[in-house]
Design a protein around this nucleic acid. Sequence first.
DNA 1: CCGGACTCCTGTGCGC
DNA 2: TGCGCACAGGAGTCCG
Length: 302
Amino acid sequence: MPELPEIEHLRSTLRPALLGRTVTSVKVLRHDVIREPATEATDDRGGTPSGRSLLASQRIVGLERRGKQLAIVGDAGTAICIHLGMSGRLLVRPQPLPVDCVPPHTHCIWRLRDSHRRSALLFVDPRRFGGIWSFPSLASLFEQRWRRLGPDAASISAAQLRSALRQVQRPVKAVLLDQSKLAGLGNIYVDESLFRAAIHPRRSADSLSDAELRRLARSIRLVLLQAIQAGGSTIRDYVDGNGRAGAAQARHCVYGRGGLPCLACGQALAADRILQRTTVFCEHCQPTGEEMMVKKASLSLR
DNA sequence: CCGGACTCCTGTGCGC
DNA sequence: TGCGCACAGGAGTCCG
């Protein structure tokens, strides 16, 4: 479940492995992971999706991130956007590739070289919630895709948060998960941020005071920064570009700890479902404030 | 307009 | 030991 910290850490581990390398060929093993906008061109042999729109024969000159999405930029301008979804990985492997270095569910392989080394970049995604989008330029990626994303969570300000939550009568957790409002948070870091800010996940988004907005913005930035520094959270799938797991999961205060004692007050943590997502919080440390809550629809009996 | 439910998909871990 | 099922959930889509 890579969220912003995992992607940011991945970016930093991929940078030395990719920047300056030239893509000698691209092999798409599973075509449907290449998403819109469709790759219109085909290669010389016809039929298979074009290598060029997937960076073939380009030198890699940039690695960008917005929210949970990564972009690899080539020197001909092409920008491919990669979203890892739930279970996606990007791995750098030696080339030629020993058979046991190609994991199951490898969908795309970029072969790379520089003056003295060959390597390969693999996109692996068992659940296929992820995907790859190609754009002729970084500018068109911004205009067509990243424009739909809210401000990046790693640098969110209280003012940006205020405008994202303004006039929204939904649980604050639901809004924080909405990538068009705020880009980068997933289930783990939303729960961690709300716990740190001592805000109940079901509070109506528009009910947060200025003090709470400042606290929440600061908590989000801090939780993400600490997770980036710890190399991201490895719950099940995530590994960085070198195949290494992260360590941030050891710092989680609430995620995955439903029923266990709150690290602050000792009371058993509550587990609930918001937007079909398991939500863990402390009823004591994250008080409700009754009239500010979004009620569960199922509670409207009588 | 809004929010909830459903969909895609596979690996894991549990209960029986 | 093995089977079946619940669960994990990012994000798009559909429906009330």
